[in-house]
Simulated scan of single mutants.
Amino acid sequence: MAQKFGGKYSPDGQTQSSDRPSPQASPQQEFRGATRSRIGMRSNLLFIAPLPLIWNAFSAEPLVMAQYLAALGVLLLSAWLTREGLRAEEAYDARKVARRPALPRKILGSILMGLGLGLVGAAGFGPLEVPIFAVLGAVLHGFAFGIDPLKDKGMEGVDTFQTDRVARAVEEAEEYLAAMRNAMTRAGDRQASRRLEQFQATARGLFRKIEDDPRDLTAARKYLTVYLMGARDATSRFAEIYGRSRDEQARADYLALLDDLEQNFAARTEKFLLEDRSDLTIEIEVLRDRLKREGITTE
């Protein structure tokens, strides 16, 4: 069977400078928890579609030119808000406990889409077309991209104070992961990027466990703050060094750090699961003892 070349100078190849080989993630591990992003071609087209207005603007008289340029700016702002709204909705859907977005970006994007197309109608057509363009633009945008989440998730019937603490802690931890991902782009190493994604999937498994049981937050606090903060700083430093000098020893040390972090995060998650099962066993035994005292058997 043919095998993919993976020599020393291959982009995904193993180097011989490290005594500790970097583990390769299986396809199941690489795509574990992955979902299709909503930020795709449709949202990107919103940035491209208004660009012909530039030609219309600079081939028209000054007043009409100003209207076209204003419409262009409003439509581009609508596109940006829509994309940010989709990104916020993805983060909301990925979490079991989440607050609704503070700013309804997609709804504002729909309103601005209608306003921008209304300006296009005023500049190139007439007053009758303005409301038609505005209403059609806002409605079609709403149908295409939907609206923002309008209520909190996972907070029904639970202690609001605890869920707020968890939501804030997870949000801060996600910021650390995002900073690590952004820093890794400077390194230009695909294998290290995939290894980082594998660690981030393991870290998010711990996040989901904490969201399921906010009581675990205290025990996991250092994982969400101290360890991830250190990992962020190490990733930034690695990207700076490796992007400049392609230092293989620095790369090997960084991959070894990711191995250690992933093992510790996975062990912490497993310990929480074992504690939950132990708590369940205790509750079952207590209930059985009470039933026996009442003269009721479970057999």
Rank of each mutant, 00 (worst) to 15 (best):
M1D: 13
G7H: 05
Y9T: 08
S10A: 10
S10H: 13
T15P: 11
Q16W: 15
R20G: 09
S22W: 12
P23L: 12
P27C: 07
Q28R: 09
E30L: 15
E30S: 14
G33N: 07
A34G: 11
A34Y: 11
R36W: 15
S37N: 04
R38Y: 07
I39E: 08
R42E: 10
R42Q: 10
P50N: 01
L51K: 02
P52H: 07
I54W: 08
N56Q: 14
A57M: 06
S59I: 02
V64E: 14
V64C: 14
L69A: 03
A70C: 13
G73W: 01
L75C: 05
R83P: 06
R83T: 12
G85Q: 05
R87Q: 13
A88E: 09
A88W: 00
E89G: 12
R99V: 13
L103K: 12
I107A: 12
G109Y: 04
L112K: 00
L112R: 01
L115D: 06
G116Y: 03
L119H: 07
V120M: 08
G121F: 01
G121R: 00
G124E: 04
G126Y: 06
E129M: 07
P131L: 05
I132W: 07
F133D: 08
L136F: 13
L136I: 14
G137A: 08
A138Q: 02
H141S: 06
H141Y: 07
G142L: 10
G142K: 05
F143Q: 06
F145G: 05
I147S: 13
I147A: 13
D148C: 06
D148W: 06
K151N: 11
K151T: 13
G157H: 01
V158G: 09
V158K: 09
T160I: 11
T160E: 14
Q162Y: 11
D164C: 07
D164G: 10
R165I: 02
R165E: 13
A169C: 03
A169M: 06
E172D: 15
E174S: 08
Y176V: 00
A179W: 03
A179M: 08
N182F: 12
A183H: 01
M184N: 04
M184V: 01
T185M: 10
R186S: 08
A187E: 00
D189M: 00
R190Q: 04
S193D: 05
E197R: 09
E197Y: 06
Q198F: 10
Q198V: 14
Q200K: 07
G205C: 05
L206T: 00
L206W: 01
D212A: 15
D213M: 09
T218F: 15
Y223E: 13
L228H: 02
R237Q: 13
R237S: 11
E240K: 06
Y242C: 00
S245V: 03
D247F: 04
R251G: 07
L255P: 01
D259C: 03
D259T: 03
E262Q: 12
Q263M: 15
Q263Y: 15
F265Q: 01
A267S: 10
R268P: 15
K271H: 13
F272K: 04
L273N: 14
L274D: 15
D279Y: 09
L280R: 15
T281H: 11
L287T: 10
D289S: 07
R293K: 11
E294M: 14
E294Q: 15
I296Q: 07
T297H: 14
E299L: 15
